[in-house]
Design a protein around this nucleic acid. Structure first.
Length: 193
DNA sequence: AAGGGGATTGCCT
DNA sequence: GGCAATCCCCTTA
């Protein structure tokens, strides 16, 4: 397993979002390790993207999106849920990839405890809010450098063929036609095929 | 200082 | 399939 570095994230957001499909998100905290394969992402840009938090320029909330790549950006929405993003593009350029769904790999029992025992394995992290709940991610996990542990993304030594499907983003009211969502085609852990 | 909307989820019908 | 839950942040006054 090789940890993705800042050079990986410091590129065009659309490319990073597509290439994150199939990579492994790992969080090792409090003596418990949880991990999952990234099966769904969305790209968010800056001034050219009306659906992005960064569309109207720098604010206290979104300023991390303008900073160095490979840093986490966690925000709270709808009064209930956290969403996890990873900052992209060169330092000074706004961009981030929203992680929308994971296929759980390690720490299944921990995720089930956090999400509620009634949930199937496929429902543990098949949505941006579910994913953060399963991993125990809150705003405390924002602005963390993810290019080293204990919170990082890695790629397996040997990666099989990854069929990345492109689609429109979900749950936004602006720029709905843009093909900025990416998912692992046919994977049952994707929120919407 | 206040109001409105939001990159969602789960429960109820 | 519809809607409430519930809070933070941006916008405007």
């Amino acid at each position: 397993m090789k940890i993705l570095d800042r050079a990986f994230f410091g590129r065009n957001t659309q490319i990073v979002a597509a290439e994150l499909i199939g990579k492994i998100l790992v969080l090792n905290q409090g003596g418990s390790l949880v991990s999952g394969k990234i099966v769904e992402t969305e790209a968010y840009f800056g001034a050219d993207d009306p659906a992005s938090h960064a569309f109207r320029g720098v604010t206290p909330r979104n300023r991390v999106m303008f900073g160095p790549a490979g840093v986490s950006y966690v925000y709270f929405t709808y009064g209930n849920h956290h969403c996890l993003n990873i900052v992209t593009e060169a330092d000074g350029v706004a961009g981030a990839v929203l992680l929308r769904a994971l296929e759980p790999l390690s720490g299944l029992s921990i995720m089930k405890k956090r999400r509620g025992a009634k949930h199937q394995t496929t429902a543990l992290a098949n949505g941006p809010g579910k994913l953060t709940q399963a991993f125990g991610i809150t705003r405390d996990h924002s602005e963390i450098d993810m290019t080293r542990g204990p919170f990082f993304v890695a790629e397996k030594a040997e990666e099989g063929f990854v069929h990345v499907q492109t689609a429109k983003r979900i749950g936004i009211s602006a720029a709905q036609h843009l093909p900025y969502r990416f998912y692992l085609r046919g994977n049952p852990f994707v929120s919407v095929q």
